[in-house]
Amino acid sequence: MNLSQELLSFDANIPRNQIGRIERGEISTSITTLQKICKALNIEIKDLF
């Protein structure tokens, strides 16, 4: 999937810098945030792991 951090952050209603920090492993995130990301990506949370 070719999706920018900016578009993902818009679709998931999460700040773009937070998406980047999650990707780089700089921060942990909540299940709620993961659910928002999964909904924006149209995947199940298990697919992240």
Results as ranks from 00 to 15, higher is better:
1 M>C: 11
2 N>Q: 14
2 N>V: 10
2 N>L: 13
3 L>S: 14
3 L>G: 15
5 Q>D: 05
6 E>G: 10
6 E>S: 14
6 E>N: 14
7 L>E: 15
7 L>S: 08
8 L>F: 06
11 D>I: 09
12 A>T: 08
13 N>F: 14
13 N>I: 15
14 I>G: 05
14 I>S: 05
14 I>Y: 08
15 P>N: 07
16 R>A: 01
16 R>Y: 03
18 Q>H: 09
19 I>K: 02
19 I>V: 08
20 G>N: 04
20 G>P: 01
21 R>L: 11
21 R>G: 03
21 R>S: 09
22 I>F: 07
22 I>E: 03
22 I>S: 02
22 I>D: 04
23 E>I: 00
24 R>P: 02
24 R>F: 02
24 R>Q: 10
24 R>K: 06
25 G>A: 06
26 E>S: 06
26 E>C: 05
26 E>P: 08
26 E>R: 03
26 E>D: 12
27 I>S: 07
28 S>Y: 11
28 S>D: 15
28 S>C: 13
29 T>M: 14
30 S>C: 09
31 I>G: 08
33 T>Y: 07
33 T>G: 08
34 L>W: 06
34 L>F: 08
34 L>H: 03
34 L>R: 02
34 L>T: 01
35 Q>L: 12
36 K>G: 10
36 K>I: 11
37 I>E: 00
38 C>V: 04
40 A>M: 11
41 L>A: 11
41 L>V: 10
41 L>I: 10
42 N>Q: 11
42 N>M: 02
46 K>W: 10
46 K>R: 15
46 K>A: 07
48 L>D: 01
49 F>R: 01
49 F>T: 01
49 F>N: 00
49 F>G: 00
